[in-house]
Amino acid sequence: MLRYALRRLGGLIPTLLVIVTVSFCIVRLAPGGPFDQEQTLTPAVRANLDHLYGLDQPLAAQYLHYLGGLLHGDFGPSLSQRDFTVTELIGQGLPVSITVGLLAILLALVIGIPAGIAAATWRNQGADHGLTLFAALAVALPSFVTGPLFALVFGLALHWLPVAGWERGAPRYLVLPVLTLALPVAAYLARLTRASLLEVLRSPWIRSARARGLGGTRVLWRHALRPALLPAVSYLGPALAYVVTGSLVVETVFGLPGTGRYLVQGAIDRDYPLVMGMIVVYGALLLLFNLIADLLYGWLDPRVRHE
């Protein structure tokens, strides 16, 4: 198992290399440059700037130089915020984004899976119908709609929670962003769990467990739950991808000092190292999380034990 995990981890490196290469090409093929906004630059100053950041060299050399830097964990200097390196900028924002993102996934798991189990247990009763309807609504709503609506209702109208801000991660400021991100993931998890639990409960081995005289609760917890959770586990990878993109919106709506703004602003400013750094960091995170979900899946389902 450990050897398998390590081999899979090694297998991520070529994929990451592809991500770096493709995004390097896209970012560099685009028209415009990082210093176009500054009109007062004389040609000489501009040439100096280009030389300083190595932009006057051939693209292939720049690419190799960038890869070399990555190997040392160096993402290069930011071209738009010149007092900072990309590593510093992302290092400042990432803890915020990761805190919000992980809390959202945890909250989604804690709400979504029990809700799905409850809905499957009390199938076709009032609670089930209510939950299904609520889940359909929550899945359909994107975070850029729910976020502002939550801020409007809980912040401006009811004054329960602050509308926006961070205040070094004070819990009051975390509630609305985390809730906004978690809601659709929780709803999707609830739907997945409900559907798969219902399917598992119809399967032959559950019938045989019942035939052996086991009670409903014991069948549910000992036999049905583990296989029923598999779809939820394989959804964890896409869930993280959702939370990552959702965080772009949530950080804008709630004014959080995360990394989300760097991607859009960096692309607008043609801040090549910053955009690349964001893609590399988030690409690596997504790959890693997908791998963890895969391994967890193998651990839960003996039929796909990895060797």
Partner: peptide, 21 residues
């Protein structure tokens, strides 16, 4: 498969930003 593993929304954001917003 490789394209699947890219953070695709990032790519879309970058494409739309860089080429004629």
């Amino acid at each position: 498969d490789v394209l699947y593993s890219l953070p695709y929304l990032f790519i879309v954001i970058i494409l739309t930003t860089l080429f004629q917003r």
